[in-house]
């Protein structure tokens, strides 16, 4: 890891997130250590409830850790005020959700233009940029459709267009293909893969082991901690990699557990 020169975009150290108090106390994240470099495409896997969503929410500044360090671009985020954090969400981070999360009463183009609003872009310029973005996702003719008039795959492509319209450097995707069939899933993955090639940092949670082949690094989580951390060789990304190549960086990996967990959740 020391061989790679790009500076870390994200650095987590002993990150903890507690939910509930007293008897109901529960650590969704229980000492996460993770370093993510610029341009990585990370696939996060793990059983349901292991803290993947919680991790993405914290990475995306929607939630706050209870303990530990989170440095974004070398800056400790707990020192940033809410307004500054909103700015970072607006300009540096793009969210893609499993349930798409388009605003149902706004048209496709208005949804895509929404993030630009909070960046202070004028109305005409917003529509122009949103329109351009939709065209790159081959949704040019669907601009004035309402979200309910789209198929699942199209909806998610709109959501990706929205996540990208502010040109964020980090894309956080929480099971982006979770509600899609395998064909649509692969189309979405191709889009993400494309973004990765253009230099974006992508952190994606998925339950589908086939899709990890698009990633450059696969992390499995267990009980709020990193379980395995595997680098994938870039030339193999086109074929589904059943067997991860590269080095496992984490110790104390109980070999059977993640496999069992995958069966439970997939």
């Amino acid at each position: 890891m020391a061989k790679i020169k790009t500076p870390p975009v994200i650095e987590l150290h002993n990150l903890k997130k507690r939910f509930g108090i007293g008897d109901a106390e529960h650590f969704a994240l229980d000492g996460m250590d993770l370093t993510i470099k610029k341009g990585e495409f990370i696939a996060i896997m793990g059983p349901s409830g292991c803290g993947k969503t919680t991790l993405l929410n914290i990475l995306g500044l929607l939630d706050h850790s209870t303990d530990g360090e989170y440095k974004l671009d070398g800056q400790e985020v707990s020192t940033l005020g809410p307004r500054r954090q909103a700015r970072i969400r607006s300009q540096q981070i793009g969210f893609i959700f499993q349930s798409f999360n388009l605003i149902s009463r706004l048209s496709v183009i208005e949804n895509v233009a929404l993030p630009l609003t909070y960046k202070g872009v004028s109305h005409t310029k917003r529509l122009e940029l949103a329109s351009d973005m939709l065209r790159t996702f081959h949704l040019g003719e669907r601009e004035y459709y309402m979200p309910y008039q789209l198929s699942g795959g199209q909806t998610q492509r709109v959501a990706i267009a929205r996540a990208l319209v502010n040109e964020p450097s980090i894309i956080l995707a929480d099971e982006p293909t979770g509600n899609l069939d395998s064909r649509s899933s692969h189309i979405i993955m191709e889009e993400l893969s494309d973004l990765h090639k253009r230099g974006n940092t992508i952190i994606m949670v998925t339950h589908n082991p086939r899709l990890t082949s698009y990633a450059s690094r696969v992390i499995t989580m267990l009980d709020g901690r990193v379980d395995t951390d595997t680098m994938v060789l870039p030339q193999l990304t086109t074929t589904p990699a059943k067997r991860p190549l590269g080095t496992t960086t984490k110790k104390k990996a109980k070999r059977k557990k993640p496999a069992k967990a995958k069966k439970v959740t997939s």
Binding site: A86, R89, Q91, I103, L114, Y118
Partner: peptide, 15 residues
């Protein structure tokens, strides 16, 4: 839900 989405997309509390 819309409020959550807007916040995720960068809206501040005052927005």
């Amino acid at each position: 839900r819309e409020i959550g989405i807007r916040k995720a997309l960068g809206a501040t509390n005052s927005d």
